[in-house]
Amino acid sequence: MSSSSTLASEISQAQTEALSAIAGALDAAGLRSVQAELAGKKSALTVLRSQLGKIQDAEERKSAGQAIHACAQTIEAAIGERMALLLAGERAQQVASEAMDLSEFVTAKRRGSTHIVTQATQRLEDVFIGLGFQVAEGPEVETDFYNFEALNMPKTHPARSEFDTMFIEPASADQEPNSVLLRTHTSPVQIRVMQSWKPPIYAVMPGRVFRRDTPDATHMPVFHQIEGIVVDKGITFAHLAGIIEAFTKAFFGNEFTSRLRPSFFPFTEPSAEFDIRRANGAWIELGGCGMMHPNVLRAGGIDPDEYTGFAFGFGIDRMAKERHNVEDIREMYTNDLRFLRQFS
């Protein structure tokens, strides 16, 4: 009995000493060495454990073993608890000591910006892509054929004079004057698309166009348009009105609506102007559209008795100008970085 009670008191003493050592560790490193010591060969608990074998009575030995195990667990738990406390304290100290002023940073490289006309073009393209259109492009220097003739404007057509065309000087004496020009609209691309694609065609054609206009707050001689065509069997005027409406809502917002009213363009018939209406009821003229004239379809190599199509077009610069409240369109083309960087 005496030996077992001695063992019990030795275990209890080992635990008391261990717990005090743990409590005495002041930082994680100190605790780690305490931990190593307690697990070491010379630690009180290890010594006691090694003496277990000497106990003859099986029952006694078992209960002594259990007591040592319980003691070891208590110590381990105390270490864990103490370690967590010390680490938390140390991290808190670290965080407190390394405060940094986040507004104190040096920019390595500033991001540039895309031009607002490009931004407008891309937004327009994306809306039409969503409506199932592909994007087509064409040359800016064009022939009379693509810019006028193929668009139902033969040589003497009076509407030609309304385009204020800029012509290219003939390259040689045998080149006919005014046969090469800067395209006055994106419509030549209609013809090029029809000549090289097969119906069904759903295409939008953004691009740069040229008119002999003196620059002012709302006009530039070099500006941008987007034009769209749909050519397929069974395409009617109602589809034109539908696409204009769908575009209006997608681009300007659901509160906008559109209307078509009769107008005249040589390349479409029936022709229409399309207006959009703000929620406040104000109508804004946006662009022109219409059913493609049979002569235009023919010029594109498409049989007007088999296919029908519609076309629409409007200016891009104005979209950018109005979206960003630019007062004078010329500002968009000064290439002043103070202007450009506003829109990154």
Binding site: G130, A241, I244
Partner: peptide
């Protein structure tokens, strides 16, 4: 014109940018 209706055609074409674009 208003009486001719508005129908949004369902494009049979896959609307997308070309690789170049």
């Amino acid at each position: 014109y208003d009486n001719l209706g508005k129908i949004v055609p369902t494009s049979p074409v896959h609307g997308r940018l070309s690789d170049v674009q």
